[in-house]
Structures are given as structure tokens and as C-alpha cells.
Design a protein around this nucleic acid. Structure first.
Lengths: 132, 132
DNA sequence: GCTTGACCTTCCAGTTACTGGAGGCCTTAT
DNA sequence: ATAAGGCCTCCAGTAACTGGAAGGTCAAGC
């Protein structure tokens, strides 16, 4: 299988697949002409990585997940721990973004949005929010 | 004012302040010895940027906000538009993270988390989610 | 046999917003 | 005189790609 076939099957961009080889996530064979020659296993791994990435796992976490997947002696507790740690990170980000969202939407509501210069958004950014 | 005073006042790291000068957000004066010599205006600008950044505005948006702030003839509509566009982006991210969160927490709930190898999380990542 | 166009290759640079570190002046206090 | 600490610049690295240049390969058509 050539790289564009794999890209079509997995939905991953060609560039990304090459990148995943660069960083050692996959090691496809090479044809005599130098082209990458992907096996079904490579395809499967890439699909796996693609789904893990779509759940927000970082590349190193993907590497760990792949290793666990290939390890028949794994304990599901190890996978769960990894996933929980990632979930906490997601929750942290959601909270952070939610706080931004709340502040920002209040400011937006307070702004007339007309052709006058006075603007509560700018006023808030310029205001002293210091603790002292 | 030396850079560490500004860092203390604004809460921004020294490195970040130098970086903001590099990219032209601020242009502090220099003392005879080559040290940056920050004015109150510089301080104010940096605090402004710090607050905009804490609301998640990107650097270029900060530049725009600063420009609008300094433009007495601005229309609040322009500020509002910028903020709304940023809010949409935040909402998009929250939605994306929320979807990840939901999927991931279902999988985590389904995983026994013991020392057995069978794991619904890995099974899901390995499963064919293809459209065909 | 040759050209054309679609693929494939590698390598380099750029993205975001910093952060860390090396190597080296400047200042202040002892 | 020296030691500590603050300041300087420049270089490299981070995460995960993405775009583009320069060039080899392959299949089809004339």
C-alpha cells in the first residue's frame, strides 16, 4: 500500500503519516523504488493513533497506548490510569476555557457595539485588577 | 523601572516581557547602561496584554486590542466584533473538549481497571470506526 | 520512445507563545 | 577586589504538524 492509500483509509494527511514515521510511531517497509510500503498492521496502528489523537491524547500518550495495546500482559488498570490522567487534563482545560468564556461574554454583553468609542471590554482590560 | 520590577508588578515573567519587546508589542526606552527602562505607559500596556492573554486572546489579537485602545476614534463595534470572534473560538474548543470528555469518560467507566489485560479503552481505539 | 501528470521522496522552514540556558556585562555591598 | 545578583543577547527547544522546494518514479497516451 502506498502512502496516499493509507491517507485515504485513515483520514490522516500524508504529511502526518510521514511525520509519525519520523518520530518512530510506525516503521513501514520500503519498496525497491524507495516508496513506503504499508502493511495492514501499519494501517491498523495509524488508525489507532488517529483515534487516540482525536480523543486528545498527546503523541507520547499515543506511544504508551500503542505499547500497552501490543502488550498481552498489560493490566487494564494501566490503561485506565493513563486515560484518567488525560481526562483530568481535559477537565482542567474545560474549566479554564469556561472561566474565560464567562468573563468574556459578560464583557461582550456590556458593550454597545456601536460607532462610539467607549467600550467596557477595553475598559476592563485597562483597569487595575491588582490585589493591593 | 527595571525589568524585574515590571515583572513583579504585572505578574509576567521577565522572559515574556523581553519576548513582547522582540515582537514589537512594547518599545521600552534604554538606560545608558543598556538596561531596559520601563515607563508607566509600558507597565500599563503590559498589564493590558497580560489580562487580554488571560482571557485567551492570541498575540495578534492583543496587538489589535492595544491599537484599538490607543485609538480615540475607535468604534466599540470593532472591539466587540474581535471579542465575539474570540468567544466563538472558545466555544468551539469547549465543545470539542466536551465531546472528548464524554467519549473518554464512558470508556473509563467501562474499564475494570484491574490487572487483567482486557480493556474497553484499547478495544475502542483499535475498533474500526470507519464509515464504510 | 517521449512527454505529461500524478505520485513519491527528502529536507528545510514556519507555525504559537514562550522557556531554558550559555556566556558575558553591570551594579552594589563588603 | 571580589562575590552575588541583575541585566544583556543569542541560540535552541517545546507540540504536532504543515507548506514548499527540488527532484526521482510510474502509468498512460501519442
Amino acid at each position: 500500500m502506498n502512502i496516499s492509500d493509507v491517507a485515504n483509509s485513515t483520514g490522516l494527511p500524508v504529511k502526518t503519516i510521514r511525520y509519525y514515521e519520523d518520530i518512530g510511531l510506525i516503521t513501514p517497509a520500503r519498496s525497491a523504488n524507495g516508496y513506503r510500503d504499508f502493511s495492514d498492521t501499519d494501517l491498523h496502528k495509524l488508525a489507532f493513533i488517529g483515534r487516540a489523537r482525536s480523543l486528545g491524547f498527546g503523541i507520547e500518550a499515543c506511544r504508551d497506548l500503542l505499547r500497552l495495546y501490543n502488550d498481552q500482559t498489560r493490566a487494564s488498570a494501566d490503561v485506565k490510569r493513563l486515560a484518567q490522567s488525560h481526562l483530568s487534563e481535559i477537565d482542567r482545560k474545560i474549566t479554564e476555557l469556561g472561566e474565560m468564556r464567562d468573563t468574556l461574554s459578560h464583557l461582550i454583553d456590556a458593550c454597545a457595539g456601536n460607532d462610539r468609542p467607549d467600550c467596557p471590554i477595553l475598559a476592563d482590560l485597562a483597569a487595575d485588577h491588582g490585589s493591593a
